[in-house]
Computed example of a mutant assay.
Amino acid sequence: MMRRLVVTMLFALSVFGPSMCFAQPAKNLIPAYQAISTPDFGYLPTYVARAKGCFTDERLDLKVIVMNSRVSVPALIANEVHFGVAGPAITATLRGAPLKAIYFIYNTSTFQFTVRPEIRTADDLKGKTIAISSPGATNDMATRLILAKLGLDPVRDVKFIAIGDAKARMIAMDQGQVAAAANNPDIAAELVRKGFRILMHSGDVFPVPFSGTAVNEKLIRENPDLIKRWLRAHLKAMLLIRQRPDEAAQIAARDLKLNLDIAREATTQVLQFMYPNDPGGFTEKGMKIFLQQTAPRLGIDPDKVAISQVADVSFLREAQRELGIKCRDGYGC
């Protein structure tokens, strides 16, 4: 019986590769807490990893908590959660917080700047209200860069309102409370079906590592094993999304309560932004662009900020090697 089980597992590995998750019995699991800013495609691998038993396979009992970055960053600093959103965490790091980014899903920002049906041109946005997730967040930065590219002054031409949850931003747009917002592909696809328009993709102006995760340096020192378990689960999920996108779309449709066709469309879109040569990693160029956009807002010279000050890829590289993933072209490969 044991020999048959081993043969079956080896056959599965040969067919599916390292992304195959063999969910172990839920005994003696290690509790872990991850804060996300909003339940959407920005965290697709987390949902896929949970659905396919990748966390259980790594003996993790992962609790996913939705919270605004104004709450999640202090929680990460206070070690109340193990994993938090990287964008605002890097900003906090530049201010002196003991945080490090360890993982990114996408090699560019994935926002689609969506406007109400009556907005035909950028000029129609003058005097209108635009929704952002929270001040200083990557959503805010991308929105301001998009507006500038469209020829608008983000300070004088429009007003902003912070609406943290992506679904809440969609409702605000639907009800006419706001004229536009930068949305992730699943939300944008839903709005387009209602007659809304996409004016620009944020990747055109904000090609930075995106949908990342950060940890406290205390966790790096005291529990590196937890970090590697979390990373291996996410890497397996990323490989599974690439190998079986329709299955990933079905998981997204169920867990994010989306129409299946919209989930399939969004999955196809985000796959092109997952770095195949370095899943979970980022390029030096991309991170430098992020720092160039972030540091000056804090009165810091970005050229004086080393990437190692804000990110630690050592655990990602270990997890990749353990799964047989060969990193190419990424930072620290």
Rank of each mutant, 00 (worst) to 15 (best):
R4L: 13
L13S: 12
S14A: 15
V15D: 01
F16N: 04
P18N: 05
P18E: 05
M20D: 00
P31V: 10
A32L: 06
A35W: 03
A35K: 06
G42R: 11
Y43V: 13
L44K: 02
P45T: 08
Y47W: 15
V48P: 10
V48G: 11
G53D: 10
F55N: 08
E58M: 15
I65E: 09
S69E: 10
S69V: 09
V71H: 10
A75Y: 12
A86I: 02
L94Y: 11
L99A: 11
F104H: 15
T108E: 11
T108L: 00
R116K: 12
P117H: 11
D123P: 07
T129A: 08
S133F: 06
L145Q: 13
L147R: 05
L147K: 04
L150P: 09
R156L: 09
V158T: 08
D165N: 14
M170P: 03
V178Q: 00
N183R: 08
A188G: 10
A189N: 06
E190S: 15
L191H: 02
G195C: 04
L199Q: 05
M200T: 03
P209H: 05
F210D: 10
F210I: 00
I220M: 12
R221P: 05
I227M: 01
A233Y: 01
L235A: 02
K236Q: 09
R242A: 14
D246R: 14
D246M: 04
I251T: 06
D255T: 14
K257C: 01
D261W: 03
I262Q: 02
R264G: 09
T268C: 00
T268M: 08
M274C: 11
P279I: 06
M287E: 13
K288I: 06
Q293N: 09
T294Y: 00
T294A: 03
A306M: 10
S308E: 15
Q309N: 13
A311H: 10
A311T: 07
A319K: 04
A319T: 03
E322V: 07
C333F: 08
